[in-house]
Amino acid sequence: MRVYIITLSDKGYTNEREDVSGKVICEMVTEKGYTIVNYIILPDERDLIANTLKEICDKNEADLILTTGGTGLSKRDVTPQATKDVVEYEVPGIAEAMRYNSLQITKRAMLSRSIAGVRNTTLIINLPGSPKAVKENLEFIIDELSHGIDILKGSASECARK
């Protein structure tokens, strides 16, 4: 599986803050055998984020895009809006599962606006910005992602558990 990692952070983009969350994602997906095709940091700019997501999907550069950051309540947190601008349909179960799992750890998980959706044959998932939350959320969903992507790509046809 080809993975594109995007960190959304004004401070990360200007090198005012080290991007630990993106590195956590890189380590976790590599351990699972995924191939990282690119890893970038962008500022919290809705149009830039949306255009980048659209370009990656439309050029079929990745099977999975994992974003980190921009899912909170501040005015600059626009990742979910940018993602909604480009997805053809949402996959609400992924975000619901992440929030449910996170609520077992902290009630602040209810403040996350992460979404997941599909454009063409690419799955896009918004992860939180905190390294701890990224690790907890990705650990919870990562083992099921390959099956979902196989279904999306048409290389698997059965969803029933064996």
Rank of each mutant, 00 (worst) to 15 (best):
G33M: 00
Y34F: 15
D10M: 04
T71Q: 05
P43Y: 05
G33I: 02
I41E: 04
D10Q: 09
V78S: 03
N15G: 14
R76N: 14
G70K: 06
I36K: 10
N38A: 10
R17W: 13
G69Q: 05
E88I: 09
E55G: 14
T35A: 09
I36W: 01
L42H: 07
E45Q: 12
D44E: 01
K32N: 07
I41W: 05
L42Q: 02
K75L: 14
R76G: 13
T68L: 04
R76D: 14
G12M: 05
K75D: 13
T35E: 04
P43W: 03
D58T: 15
M28I: 10
I25P: 12
D63L: 08
R17S: 14
E31H: 00
N15W: 04
I65R: 03
K75T: 15
K23H: 08
A82G: 10
E27T: 14
V29D: 02
V20P: 09
P43V: 05
L73F: 00
N38V: 12
E16I: 13
V24F: 02
I41N: 03
K32V: 11
R76C: 14
K75W: 12
N60Q: 00
C26S: 15
G22Y: 07
R17L: 14
I65S: 06
E31C: 08
D19N: 02
I49Q: 03
V24T: 07
Y89F: 09
D58K: 06
A50Q: 05
I36T: 14
K54Y: 12
D19L: 03
D85C: 11
G22M: 10
K32P: 11
N60W: 03
V24C: 01
D47L: 08
I40Q: 00
K54P: 12
M28S: 00
V24M: 00
S21K: 03
A82K: 09
L66A: 14
T79D: 04
